[in-house]
């Protein structure tokens, strides 16, 4: 196994998508889809060998879960749904398949321990954006007439230059996968203890959560005055004082009590990227303004009215009228 097989796989993938796109017999399309799925599955399965052959090395950080089957399921569903989305005749179904893609990638996010992102994705994308798309699709459908029954529009059925597009796309895929397998040698595996230390450090900013955690771990304990979580090579701990005791105890903090993903994201968002947060808000505000402007009722202005509004003379064949107009309004603002 070497890059050539990878490229061959990409070629097969291109052929698969191409076949899936042609508005032909269903059998052809299904065959294409299956072929594509097989290719992707192979690529994923062959990853270890490919990695060893092509010199890449990245493995996920130690301590990560190894969810083999779940990953396969989510990724294959995502890809299949994406292919179906671009090949379906009806726009509504495309949107629905996109929803499926979103859900699958939310699942992938979960596997990557990014829970917040997963839910945010589902809420924002699937819940808001795609619903908007659906509304617009239904708004922009052509009304059925006598000679044109409800069905697919011609421009939906026939793809535009599928060959070239597939070729171009899969060249890109070949290169990207080449990079992914070949890897960037300098990509260094993350240092887990350092990350944990940073996480404990971040938690210090959330004093109430710290109190809750301490109370949770050791009932009746409170963090000592002025105490912060400290990280040491052995682990993290915090100085606490139990009720009814006159001395401080060191409470070791287990790794399960690391701040959750939501807490981390929230902290970073506010502590490290406040300006971006504000700007994101501004962007949304602008989008709202734009939407309001666009949705105004459009008045069809005639050519003359537009010119008048712009302060220009009327056109030639209206010269007599304009001459009269000018004669009658000599001190006009022209």
């Amino acid at each position: 196994m070497d890059p050539k097989l990878l490229y061959f796989a990409c070629v097969l993938g291109a052929a698969a998508v191409y076949l899936a796109l042609r508005p032909g017999k269903r059998g052809v399309r299904i065959a294409g889809s299956l072929l594509g799925l097989g290719v992707i599955a192979w690529m994923l399965l062959a990853t270890p060998q490919l990695l060893s052959v092509m010199g890449g090395k990245p493995a996920l950080a130690e301590g990560a879960a190894r969810p083999g089957l779940m990953f396969a399921a989510f990724s294959l569903i995502a890809i299949a749904a994406a292919v179906r989305m671009i090949t379906h005749d009806r726009p509504v179904y495309s949107a629905l398949y996109f929803v499926l893609v979103v859900l699958s990638s939310a699942g992938l996010f979960l596997l990557l321990q990014a829970e917040f992102m997963a839910f945010a994705l589902v809420i924002v994308y699937a819940g808001a954006i795609l619903i908007t798309y659906m509304f617009v699709i239904m708004l922009a459908q052509q009304a059925p007439s006598t000679d044109h029954t409800v069905g697919e529009a011609e421009y939906d059925v026939n793809p535009r230059e599928p060959g070239i597009a597939c070729g171009v796309g899969f060249i890109l895929l070949a290169v990207l996968s080449n990079m992914a397998y070949g890897g960037v040698p300098q990509l260094k595996t993350a240092d887990v203890p350092a990350a944990q230390r940073q996480a404990w450090q971040a938690m210090n900013l959330m004093s109430r959560d710290v109190e809750e955690m301490v109370a949770d771990l050791m009932p009746g304990a409170k963090p000592a005055a002025g105490a912060t979580i400290e990280s040491a090579p052995g682990g993290a701990f915090i100085t606490v004082r139990r009720e009814g005791e006159a001395f401080d105890t060191r409470l070791p903090l287990p790794p399960e009590k690391l701040p959750s993903n939501v807490q981390q994201v929230g902290l970073d968002l506010v502590a490290k990227f406040p300006v971006s947060l504000e700007l994101a808000g501004v962007i949304l505000l602008m989008a709202m303004f734009g939407a309001v402007v666009l949705a105004r009722k459009q008045i069809e202005l005639g050519e003359d009215e537009i010119r008048e509004a712009a302060g220009m003379r009327k056109l030639g064949f209206h010269a007599e009228e304009s001459a009269e107009a000018r004669a009658s309004a000599p001190g006009g603002a022209r």
Partner: peptide, 24 residues
Amino acid sequence: ALSHISLTHYLIVSAALFVIGLVG
């Protein structure tokens, strides 16, 4: 094979989705 999911797997998936989106 599936028990060692690495970064590469995710990158492949991402690349495939991207390319499919581009083709579409």
